[in-house]
């Protein structure tokens, strides 16, 4: 519980003081040489490692995945302003529980990526508030009961939806004019519960293909799902119009789905600065050529910048 207290102290202290995401600080610039094989966490990456309580998360080699008896998730992350935007309006937050004790405790991790929008720092404030508020709500309603060996008081889908509603209310009140997408994965045991609004996405990265798990809340996606809009017809449709985001007064109806987290695929959460810049083939190649999820994330950001870096780029990779 120590780390939770620490987290909360910081959260409260920084609430109004800083627009930097509390848990995940921006990644080291991707132009710096990545250090994928470094066995120990570097402290400048913020609280991620402190919470994770282990150095293994980011540095285990990628598949063929060795049989790992100890409970815990393996993950990496990176975020970067890109080459065009003046600031990074994305935010990332990761909470990971690693437990080794005399009882059984299903491993749990929470992974959030948000892409803020709106001028006058509204975007970065909205995404920052979103990830912190969602994590705060889920800590209270899922993680703390879980640590007491209690199941959630309400269906997980509803708890996740409520966490987004809580964040939405905060943003509407505190950041008028700011909005944000969010995609989150609550990993409990071998299940991943996904929640999202907007066009930040979750994928399963299989050895041979990408499986998109979320459906964008965008005008063009809506037209495609309603009538199978052809590529040709879709060309004229504006691609940048969302009909749902946190901080916008539309009816909030987040996308939810549960997936089993396979042992031979990575769960990837990312903003449009990544999926809009890199092709499926590029993403597959980069991920499976990397030696760790952390290396994969950093290289994905690097290559998205090489491809133009028109937008902020954020990515999280999680595996069992």
């Amino acid at each position: 519980m120590k780390w939770l207290k620490r987290l909360f102290r910081r959260t409260e202290a920084e609430k109004n003081a800083s627009s930097v995401p509390v848990v995940a600080q921006p990644a080291p610039p991707a132009s710096e040489p990545a250090a994928p094989t470094s066995p120990s966490p570097s402290t400048e990456r913020g609280l991620v490692k402190i919470e994770a309580g282990t150095s293994q998360g980011a540095t285990m080699p990628l598949p063929p995945i060795p049989v790992q008896l100890s409970a815990g998730l393996r993950f990496g992350w990176a975020t970067d302003p890109g080459l065009v935007r003046p600031s990074n309006e994305d935010a990332i937050l990761i909470l990971d529980i690693v437990y080794q004790g005399s009882r059984e405790l299903v491993p749990v991790g929470l992974f959030l990526v948000a892409d803020g929008m709106g001028g006058h720092q509204g975007g970065e404030q909205a995404s920052d508030l979103a990830v912190r508020e969602i994590a705060r709500y889920l800590t209270t309603h899922l993680l703390i009961p879980h640590l007491a060996h209690r199941g959630p008081e309400h269906p997980i889908k509803e708890v996740l939806e409520k966490s987004l509603q809580a964040a939405n209310a905060q943003i509407l009140q505190a950041v008028p004019g700011g909005g944000t997408t969010v995609v989150g994965a609550l990993v409990m045991g071998d299940s991943a519960h996904l929640i999202h609004v907007g066009d930040s996405r979750a994928y399963l990265v299989w050895p041979d293909r990408l499986e998109q798990l979320t459906e964008d809340h965008s005008l063009v996606q809506r037209m495609i799902s309603l009538k199978g809009l052809s590529e040709e017809d879709a060309a004229g449709v504006p691609r940048n119009v969302l009909y749902q985001a946190l901080g916008y007064p539309s009816r909030l109806n987040p996308g939810y789905r549960r997936v089993s987290l396979p042992r031979d695929a990575w769960l990837m959460l990312c903003t449009d600065g990544l999926w809009g810049e890199l092709s499926e083939a590029q993403i597959l190649r980069i991920v499976w050529e990397s030696n760790s999820p952390q290396e994969a994330c950093q290289r994905l950001v690097q290559e998205a910048k090489a491809a133009g870096g028109h937008d902020n780029i954020s990515v999280i990779m999680v595996g069992r």
């Binding site: 299903v106 199941g151 959630p152 309400h154 269906p155 997980i156 509803e158 299940s191 519960h193 939810y256």
Partner: peptide, 10 residues
């Protein structure tokens, strides 16, 4: 969830 009994949705 058939392994834990936790409600996923209703």
């Amino acid at each position: 969830d058939s392994r834990t009994g936790w409600a996923i949705w209703r």
